[in-house]
Simulated assay, not measured.
Amino acid sequence: MKTAITLLLVLLSICLTSYSQEYKRFKVSIDVPFSIWTSDQFNYYGGFTVEPAWRWNDKWSTGIYATLIESDSQSSREFLSETGAALSLGLTADRYLRSTSRIRPFAGLQLGRTAFVHQQVERTHFDPHGTDWGEVIHYSGVGYTMAPRIGCTLWHVRTFMMYQISTHGIPDMFTFQMGIEIGGGRKKQKSNKKLVYPE
Rank of each mutant, 00 (worst) to 15 (best):
S81Y: 14
F116Q: 10
L80P: 03
Q120M: 07
I69N: 07
H118V: 00
E122R: 02
I137Q: 05
R113N: 02
T131L: 13
T67K: 06
S101A: 11
A85K: 13
P105S: 01
I64M: 04
S99V: 07
I69T: 09
D132N: 10
S140V: 02
S99K: 03
Q110T: 02
V136K: 13
G108W: 14
G134E: 12
V121I: 07
E78T: 05
I137L: 06
R98G: 00
A107T: 11
G112S: 03
G108P: 12
V121L: 05
D127R: 04
Q110F: 10
H129S: 04
Y96W: 15
G84S: 10
Q74H: 10
Q74E: 14
S81L: 10
S88Y: 02
T92Q: 14
G90W: 15
F126Y: 15
E135F: 06
T100P: 00
R77I: 09
H129Y: 12
S81N: 08
I137T: 04
T100W: 09
L89Y: 15
R102D: 15
H138L: 05
H129T: 04
T83A: 06
L68A: 04
Y96M: 11
T83H: 11
E122F: 03
R98I: 07
A66S: 11
V121G: 00
R77V: 11
L68W: 14
G134V: 05
S73V: 09
T67F: 00
T114E: 15
R123D: 02
V121H: 01
T124C: 01
S101I: 00
S140F: 02
V136S: 03
G108S: 11
D94S: 13
S101L: 07
A85F: 08
E78V: 06
Y65L: 05
F106I: 01
I137K: 03
R102A: 04
V117Y: 13
S73P: 01
G84W: 08
L97R: 04
L109S: 06
G108K: 08
P128A: 03
L87F: 15
I64C: 01
F126L: 02
S99F: 03
S76I: 12
Q119N: 13
L68C: 01
L80N: 08
S99L: 00
R104A: 11
W133K: 00
R123E: 09
Y139A: 02
I103N: 12
